[in-house]
């Protein structure tokens, strides 16, 4: 691999791994100098850009989370009860998420994470409890939610019209959001997209129109590692923009950076930490 290409890729990967722009610049400059002095091949001297960027990010310890005052309540779920037949799936679950907060809903398979999210979105009924939403909702399911025979840009136009966005603007917004997930939507119908790409479409549609509350049900199915990191970048960015984000996830390593954790597997009656 030519050094310039490797260095450009390194720059990208450093950004993805949350390394600040100043430090990233230094790291790239130092690597460039080393390659010049040693005359070695980049892959031999440093390895793959992603791996080296990961090592740097590890050494640096990740971006520092700035203390942020929590905004007004955007989602308040109180004592949600859901039964399937006689089996209680959720027995009195509560969660409050404010503007500028990220909440993670965790739990074992079958603990009712998806059901809880759907209840919050109003897509499923609850047998007890209530949900208050201050603002608009965007919902991203684990799979599905797209029209097989429509192209990506047609999806943007359709969802955008619902939110009251003019078509040109909706197409631009969709393309912009897709780029943040390392995806350039093409002219194919969505049934021809790979599973991971379809999920990117799903995620872009959920966030289209800048809803105040984002409910994401493990939306990263089929994402490669790089896109998975991009996804969390978008989550932090939405948080910084003042949205309330709820992510159903079972991957724990991002948990130390979320504001609220709802663990549904502890007991059937869970409460937000």
């Amino acid at each position: 691999m030519r050094p310039e290409i490797w260095l450009a890729a390194l720059s990208d990967e450093l950004r993805r791994h949350g390394v600040g722009p100043d430090l990233a610049g230094h790291v790239v400059a130092e690597a460039a100098a080393h390659l010049r002095d040693s005359g070695e091949q980049p892959l031999r001297a440093f390895g793959a850009p992603a791996a080296y960027a990961a090592a740097v990010a590890d050494s640096v310890g990740g971006p520092v989370a700035a203390a942020r005052p929590a905004g007004p309540v955007r989602l308040r779920a109180v004592d949600i009860v859901k039964r399937y037949g006689r089996r209680p799936v959720l027995a009195g679950v509560s969660l409050t998420v404010r503007a500028g907060q990220v909440a993670a809903v965790v739990g074992a398979n079958g603990s009712g994470k998806s059901t809880f999210l759907r209840i919050c979105a109003g897509l499923a009924g609850a047998d007890g409890g209530r949900v208050e939403v201050h603002g608009t909702i965007g919902y991203c399911p684990q799979a599905g939610g797209t029209a097989d025979f429509l192209r990506a840009d047609e999806h943007f136009a359709l969802i955008g019209a619902g939110r009251g966005i003019r078509r040109g603007e909706a197409l631009r917004a969709g393309a912009h959001a897709a780029a943040a997930l390392d995806w350039r939507p093409g002219p194919q119908q969505s049934r021809h997209l790979s599973g991971g790409t379809r999920q990117k479409l799903n995620l872009v549609l959920a966030a289209l129109g800048d809803p105040d509350v984002l409910l994401l049900d493990e939306p990263y199915q089929g994402f490669d590692r790089g896109t998975y990191l991009d996804f969390w970048h978008e989550v932090w960015r939405w948080r910084d923009e003042g949205r309330a984000v709820v992510v159903v996830t079972h991957l724990l390593n991002q948990l130390d950076r979320v504001d609220v954790v709802l663990d549904l597997s502890a007991s059937t009656a869970g409460a937000a930490a």
Partner: peptide, 10 residues
């Protein structure tokens, strides 16, 4: 599959 999402979108 799409209609609930369209409802949510307004």
């Amino acid at each position: 599959a799409l209609e609930p999402r369209l409802r949510l979108s307004g």
